[in-house]
Simulated assay, not measured.
Amino acid sequence: MLPNIHAVFIEFNQYLTTHLQKKHWVFVLSFLVFLLFSVIYFPEIVRKRIHNDWTHNDQLMQQFVNNKIENPLKPTLNFAPGEHYRKRDLRITPYIIANVFHLNALRLFYLQLLLLPLFLFFSVSLLVQITKSPPISFWATVALLFSYVGNSFNYDTLFYDSYAYFALLMALYFSGNLFCVFFLLLSYFVDERSLVPSMIIPLFVGLTKYSIETTKENFKTFFQKMIWQNRSFWMVFVSMLVYVLVRVIFYINYHLNTPVGANSGVTIGLAFKYGTKLPYAIYSSLKLNFLLIFCTCFYLFRKQYYFVGLWFLAVFLMSFLVGTAVEDVTRSLAYSYLLVYIVYLISIQIKENISNFIYFIAFVNIFTPTFTLLLNLYKVEAFSWLIHF
């Protein structure tokens, strides 16, 4: 006899409501989800390590990363500007971490795996603060986990974008103090694409402090509350300023730069050359969380929250432009996931009941495949490791 799925789901949500008010239970659940998720998406690089099954490209990648770990500030001028290796010269946060803790390329990836339960913990904790609803907080995090944002912790081998995803979440979580600056700088030096979504942090803090209704006031009042008197805005501004200054210093002293120009592999709309492959890549970055973003944009303008709507929409559009200006669309667009936290914050302020919609999104995200686009469309397979054992 089949169990009553609806009754089990209700009971599980009740369990979440009872236990996720306590931090240690949040971490226990996060670790259990991490273990289950890792079984579903067994890291391919771990399998290759067990069987010593490395391709020539795998070996080149490891050699490049290990060289950068040994000399993080040594430029890779021997590569052509369009090569992805050249774009990684200033993405030095992972290499410095590995250098300090004496890790190699593979161990740096294993450390990335261990960041996933922490990512889950801070995501659930932050959403519990916002929504006051442990079930929504849990399933909203699951909805992200089964998009590329979560998959990257297991799948993204030797690119280390997950360090940036994690640092952005930590910057949002610690947006009220100077830890925010520290984590923003870490994320910027994993990948410069995190600069754009970091601008959502001042909006998040402003809407946490002030009711969304106050944003209908004139622009002068909005500017004073959300920008001039918003400490987090200045922390993001200082982070960006420090980032630019450090990049200038690195360029002058170490000749580190990010290639630009016609042959750099960065052009507005570059990814559209992939035609029908592109929608799969775009969808996989956030999956049905995109619906939340689109619905929020529509709601903000329909209700005449124009200043908030323009800020929110501008961050999304800039993330989209940056994401489609390169070939690795999926990982680029995934940086915009901070927008999802704004959605929940706004939905609580306007007292909209979106719980059933969130459950639907979570389950659709679980049962739909994730693709990443880098020259070709690759499917992140669940249980693919089983065929190799």
Rank of each mutant, 00 (worst) to 15 (best):
P3C: 12
A7E: 08
V8D: 05
F9C: 08
Q14P: 06
Q21T: 13
W25S: 08
W25R: 07
V26D: 09
V28F: 12
S30Q: 10
V33I: 12
L36G: 15
F37E: 08
S38P: 09
V39T: 12
E44V: 15
V46Y: 08
V46C: 06
I50T: 10
N52Y: 06
N52G: 02
W54Q: 07
T55V: 13
N57M: 07
Q59K: 10
F64P: 03
N66C: 04
I69H: 03
E70Y: 13
G82I: 00
H84W: 13
H84K: 05
Y85Q: 13
D89I: 04
L90H: 01
P94W: 09
N99R: 14
R107L: 15
F109P: 07
Y110L: 15
L111G: 07
P117W: 11
L118S: 15
V124R: 04
V124P: 01
L127Y: 09
V128L: 05
P134T: 03
S137N: 04
A140I: 06
V142Q: 02
Y148H: 05
G150F: 09
G150I: 06
G150A: 15
F159D: 01
Y160K: 10
D161W: 03
D161N: 08
L178P: 00
C180G: 03
C180M: 10
V181K: 05
F183C: 06
D191C: 09
L195T: 10
S198Q: 06
M199V: 13
P202Y: 02
L203Y: 04
L207R: 00
L207D: 03
I212D: 04
E213R: 08
T215R: 01
N218L: 03
F219H: 05
F219I: 13
K225C: 02
Q229R: 07
N230S: 02
F233A: 01
W234G: 07
L241A: 15
L241S: 15
V244C: 12
L245W: 04
H255F: 15
P259I: 08
G269R: 00
A271E: 03
K273H: 08
T276L: 05
A281E: 01
S285M: 03
L286Y: 09
K287T: 10
L288N: 14
F294L: 14
C295K: 08
T296Y: 01
F301C: 08
Q304I: 08
Q304D: 11
Y305R: 02
Y305K: 00
V308N: 02
G309C: 12
F312W: 09
A314H: 02
V315T: 12
S319I: 10
S319Q: 06
G323M: 00
T324W: 01
T324G: 09
A325K: 04
D328W: 00
V329P: 02
V329N: 01
L333A: 10
S336W: 00
Y337I: 13
L338D: 14
I342H: 02
I346N: 01
S347M: 14
I348K: 14
Q349H: 12
E352A: 15
S355V: 00
S355D: 01
F360C: 12
A362G: 11
F363E: 05
F363V: 14
F371I: 07
F371S: 06
F371C: 05
L374P: 00
N376D: 15
Y378I: 02
V380F: 06
S384I: 04
W385K: 04
L386T: 09
